[in-house]
Nucleic acid binder design. Structure first.
Length: 723
DNA sequence: CCATCCGCAGTTTTT
DNA sequence: CTGCGGATGG
């Protein structure tokens, strides 16, 4: 391969990015503009043309899927192995660093990783041990606090006394949590990042080594980096150039710590940085892009870009406002039938929604019409209860000090070891500063337990010890199979004759399968047993459902899950105020803008046709709710939308003569909508019940609590919106 | 200690 | 309407 091969088929902007000088580069890559292509070709360019050694490249992504895809595409491009390159997720690469330097970071060699479920369990255990009321200190919130502080690089000892008793309590919990992790020799996800950052920070010779070693760093989905990941990246880069690819308009993970500022301030952080915009879209029709551009234009502070596309204008969007959620689902099913009748495939269709709860009604409609479908997201393989139970046995087999696993399985399946006995073990462990396993052994030798409890505990420990012996030296899948069998888990779940029990048994069998096909790079984690490597893999790779494009299925997923994917036909359902944008985001403009970016992501998934649906009323949490069409509908120019009107409903019209579209537009014009609570200087609090006129002439009808219904001209009335 | 009933809350998700 | 956690009875 020579220079021209690498650049073949790239447009000028893509070429510019691929061949950019070896400085910091920010590629602002609009949806469908060939982002991954640029990234992989850049790597090929650096190696083939600039003569950069593959081992001095580090490419980082957020998901395993993206990392695997990048590796595969680079290999195809270079027709050589990428083994020597560091390509992986932030957590995967951080993990690799820690495995190499476990001694320097004071971890046991076979340290294990806590996933968020493990972490939550540990937090709960800590709360109980500190005798803290869970209702006042919700474990979820505590978990959020701990991860939040770690993401800021703050250890408990860095958190100063602020005099705030709530803060003091949280710090106390955080301290205990750290101690517990340390004792058990486990690290949570955030810890992987923080610990490796501290390693590089404190050990200057290691830092120098890695900064020398990596001459080029490449980041995908840069807009999704959180503070800690960004700090990690910069420290590892040193003065080496960073090639970042991202799109501020597709930042949809602010709620989990992603900082859109990183992409917006890139040129300040890297003063010599070059910014390149990829604005030509190869995915969608011009109509779809116009709609996307119009919606996202309502956001402030964008880096700004305008997507355009060549080719067939295609069909304009379609909007159907249903009477209710069932009618909406029926319409969607009809549209799918139509698509297929016109020669389309089901696998070309995606149904997107804001929250998982919405899938049910749609699924029922699809089942009713015999349309095969597949729901993405939901529980992942390695996160299922039964699988995690089995993994806990395996973890305890390799390391008896793993208290998190110990607690999980000591009475799973039930072997008559209850809260009481467990509490004695915990007390003993704390007093003696040892693991639960060790504490159990001690209590048994000094004969401190009731004979019943002692027998049960002894039985459990013997089970683990014997299992460890039996399994030692056997092939990995046999180890797993024997563990699943002898732990009693298989029999336990098989007792449940329902569909659920059946599925659990199958999952346990599948785990053995996963172990059979598990391969690992022997150079990757030196000194670890195959089992330990497998366990780390299970924690870091949640086990994605995998392809499935060969089944001709309609795909159902949340808008978040759709990021990075594309489909000829996209149906965005539940386009309603309160649902999308979600009511939780109403209070803060920043969160509302994130919802809008989510809408932008949804629209730009569509290649040929985009359909939008909403329901006037739907059952939510067992209650009937009424909503207006989403403001995002109103933000799309009306000439781009074909509004499919339902037949007039018997009874009083909900829209007082307006089409849903007109309604949505007025919502946008005034910043108010029907149902919004407002405050008036003279009339006090009330709720908007109607609205008419455009621009300066807008009038709203408000039903005031104390003064009844009044029509007010918005320009004069000075209504203050309430939350 | 273990099964069953009641009350409550209830976006989005990767590692 | 669900699923989870806590309280209750066997």
């Amino acid at each position: 391969m020579d220079v021209s091969d690498i650049l073949t088929g790239l447009n000028p902007a893509q070429c510019e990015a691929v061949t950019a000088p070896q400085n910091a580069v920010l590629v602002l890559a609009g949806a469908g503009s060939g982002k991954t292509r640029v990234l992989t070709h850049r790597i090929a360019w650096l190696i083939r043309v600039e003569g950069v050694s593959p081992c001095s490249l580090l490419a980082v992504t957020f998901t395993n899927k993206a990392a695997n895809e990048m590796r595969a595409r680079v290999e195809t491009l270079l027709s050589s192995s990428t083994r020597s390159m560091w390509i992986g997720t932030f957590h995967g690469l951080a993990h690799r660093l820690l495995r190499h330097h476990w001694q320097e970071v004071r971890l046991p060699q076979s340290f294990q990783i806590l996933d968020s479920d493990d972490q939550l369990r540990l937090v709960k255990r800590i709360l109980r041990s500190l005798e803290i009321d869970e209702s006042k200190w919700p474990p979820k919130h505590v978990q959020w606090f701990i991860n939040g502080r770690k993401e800021e690089g703050l250890r408990p000892q860095h958190l100063q006394e602020t005099g705030d008793p709530a803060q003091a309590q949280l710090v106390r919990i955080y301290t205990a949590y750290e101690a517990a992790c340390c004792k058990a020799g486990v690290v949570d996800f955030t810890e992987l990042m923080l610990r490796s950052l501290e390693l590089l920070h404190e050990k200057s010779e290691l830092r120098d080594y890695y900064q020398q070693h990596f001459r080029h760093l490449l980041v995908d989905e840069f807009q999704d980096t959180n503070t800690l990941q960004y700090a990690w990246l910069r420290l590892l880069a040193g003065s080496s150039p960073v090639f970042a690819v991202g799109d501020d308009d597709q930042s949809i993970y602010g709620w989990r710590g992603a900082r859109i500022e990183h992409i917006r301030d890139f040129q300040q952080d890297f003063p010599d940085a070059q910014m390149i915009r990829l604005e030509q879209n190869y995915r969608s029709t011009p109509y779809i892009l116009d709609a996307a551009n119009a919606v996202i234009a309502h956001n402030d502070g964008r880096l700004g870009k305008n997507l355009w596309a060549e080719g067939e204008r295609g069909e304009i969007l379609r909007f159907y406002q249903a009477y209710n959620d069932l009618d909406e689902a029926r319409y969607i099913a009809d549209q799918i039938k139509d698509w297929v009748a016109r020669g389309g495939r089901r696998s070309e269709i995606a149904i997107l929604y804001r929250s998982n709860a919405q899938s049910r009604v749609i699924e029922e409609a699809l089942i009713g019409r015999g349309i095969p479908y597949r729901v993405y997201g939901g529980q992942r393989f390695f996160e299922r209860t039964e699988v995690k139970d089995a993994l806990a046995y395996l973890r305890l087999i390799t390391r008896r000090t793993d208290d998190v696993s110990f607690e999980r399985i000591i009475n799973q399946p039930a072997r008559s070891i209850g809260e009481r006995t467990l509490q004695r073990l915990r007390d003993q462990a704390r007093e003696e500063g040892v693991s639960l396993w060790e504490a159990a052994a001690q209590l048994l030798t000094v004969n401190e337990l009731t004979s019943r409890a002692a027998g049960a505990v002894q039985g459990f420990m013997r089970l683990i010890d014997e299992l460890a012996q039996t399994v030692n030296g056997l092939p990995l899948d046999t180890q797993v199979a024997l563990t699943v069998e002898h732990s009693g888990l298989l029999a336990f779940f098989a007792r449940d004759k329902g569909e659920r029990g059946q599925a659990r048994v199958e999952n346990l069998e599948e785990l053995t399968n996963a172990a059979r096909v598990f391969h690992h790079d022997p150079e990757e984690h030196t000194g670890l047993s195959l089992l330990d490597t497998f366990l780390a893999h299970a924690a870091l790779e949640s086990g994605e459902g995998g392809g499935g494009a060969w089944d001709d299925c309609v795909q159902l997923m949340t808008l978040h899950a759709a990021k990075g994917l594309e489909f000829p036909l996209v149906i965005m359902s539940g386009m309603e105020e309160g649902l999308f944008p979600h009511r939780m985001s109403f209070d803060e403009p920043g969160r509302l803008e994130e919802e809008r970016r989510l809408c932008y992501v949804g629209i730009t998934r569509a290649k040929r046709q985009l359909m939008l649906t909403a329901a006037e009323t739907r059952r939510l949490h067992g209650q009937q709710t009424y909503s207006l069409p989403s403001r995002f509908i109103g933000e799309i120019p009306p000439e781009l939308i074909n509004e499919v009107r339902p037949k007039p409903r018997i009874g009083k019209p909900v829209w007082s003569g307006d089409t849903p579209m007109q309604y949505a537009r007025r919502t946008v014009d005034s910043g108010l909508w029907v149902g919004k609570h407002v405050r008036h200087v003279k009339f006090g609090d009330g709720i908007v019940i109607d609205q008419e006129g455009q621009g300066a002439q807008i009038r709203v009808q408000v039903n005031f609590k104390d003064h009844g219904q009044k029509w007010l001209v918005l320009a004069y009335a000075k209504l203050q919106p309430l939350v």
